[in-house]
Simulated assay, not measured.
Amino acid sequence: MASIFTKIINREIPGHIVAEDENYIAFLDIQPLVRGHVLVVPKQEVDYIFDLEDDMLAGLNLFAKKVAKAIDKSIRCTRVGVAVIGLEVPHVHIHLVPLRTMDDINFTRPKLKLEQEELAEIAERIKGAV
């Protein structure tokens, strides 16, 4: 069964996509830690990041760097934090989290519940900076 990320990649379910190329896609987390929290995903469905082929892992990180620079330009933050946890969805993904404090990347705290309109506005700001 396809992961929820594969369903976003295939446009079977909606996602607030901020960047995409032939191998990778980045979209807003719908339950973000902070506004501008983005997930960067390879289009190839692989469960564990260290099972990616070396070129795919390198490409994923370079793509994430491009997206992080766009987040940094478009979302008020001190820097963009990076986390790879890999337990929530069985599809490799990198969390890019705009940080103002260390607590902004605390995954145990309650997630934000944002309206679709706000998510769309944030996505457009980031997309415009990519």
Rank of each mutant, 00 (worst) to 15 (best):
2 A>S: 14
2 A>D: 15
3 S>Q: 09
5 F>M: 04
8 I>W: 00
9 I>P: 00
10 N>F: 09
10 N>T: 13
11 R>M: 14
11 R>C: 13
12 E>C: 06
12 E>F: 07
12 E>Y: 08
13 I>Q: 01
13 I>W: 02
14 P>A: 04
14 P>Q: 03
15 G>T: 07
15 G>N: 10
17 I>Y: 03
18 V>K: 05
19 A>E: 13
20 E>Q: 09
21 D>R: 10
21 D>F: 02
22 E>S: 08
23 N>C: 13
25 I>W: 05
25 I>F: 08
27 F>M: 14
27 F>H: 12
28 L>P: 03
30 I>N: 15
30 I>S: 12
30 I>R: 14
32 P>V: 07
33 L>R: 03
34 V>F: 08
35 R>V: 10
37 H>W: 04
37 H>D: 06
38 V>C: 13
40 V>K: 03
40 V>H: 02
40 V>Y: 00
41 V>Y: 00
43 K>P: 01
45 E>S: 02
45 E>Y: 01
46 V>E: 06
46 V>R: 03
47 D>Q: 12
48 Y>N: 14
48 Y>E: 15
50 F>L: 15
50 F>S: 13
50 F>Q: 13
50 F>E: 15
51 D>N: 14
52 L>K: 05
54 D>K: 12
55 D>F: 06
55 D>R: 09
56 M>T: 09
56 M>V: 10
57 L>T: 06
57 L>I: 06
58 A>G: 12
58 A>V: 12
59 G>A: 03
63 F>L: 07
63 F>M: 04
64 A>M: 01
65 K>I: 14
65 K>N: 15
66 K>S: 13
66 K>A: 11
67 V>S: 02
69 K>N: 12
70 A>C: 05
71 I>P: 07
71 I>D: 11
72 D>Y: 13
72 D>N: 15
73 K>M: 13
74 S>P: 06
76 R>D: 15
76 R>N: 15
76 R>T: 14
78 T>G: 15
78 T>Q: 14
78 T>H: 11
79 R>N: 15
80 V>P: 00
81 G>S: 01
81 G>K: 00
81 G>L: 00
82 V>A: 11
83 A>L: 14
87 L>R: 08
88 E>G: 12
90 P>V: 07
92 V>L: 00
92 V>K: 00
94 I>K: 01
94 I>L: 14
95 H>V: 02
95 H>Q: 01
95 H>M: 02
97 V>T: 10
97 V>E: 10
99 L>P: 09
99 L>R: 11
100 R>N: 14
100 R>V: 11
100 R>C: 11
101 T>S: 11
102 M>K: 08
102 M>D: 11
102 M>R: 07
103 D>E: 11
103 D>W: 04
104 D>W: 06
104 D>A: 06
104 D>R: 03
104 D>M: 05
106 N>P: 05
107 F>T: 05
107 F>Y: 08
109 R>Q: 10
109 R>K: 12
110 P>A: 07
111 K>E: 06
111 K>I: 02
111 K>P: 03
112 L>P: 02
112 L>R: 00
112 L>E: 03
113 K>S: 15
114 L>R: 06
117 E>L: 12
121 E>G: 02
121 E>C: 04
121 E>N: 08
121 E>M: 08
121 E>R: 11
123 A>K: 03
125 R>T: 04
125 R>P: 05
126 I>R: 04
126 I>G: 04
126 I>E: 09
127 K>W: 02
127 K>H: 09
128 G>R: 01
129 A>V: 05
130 V>S: 11
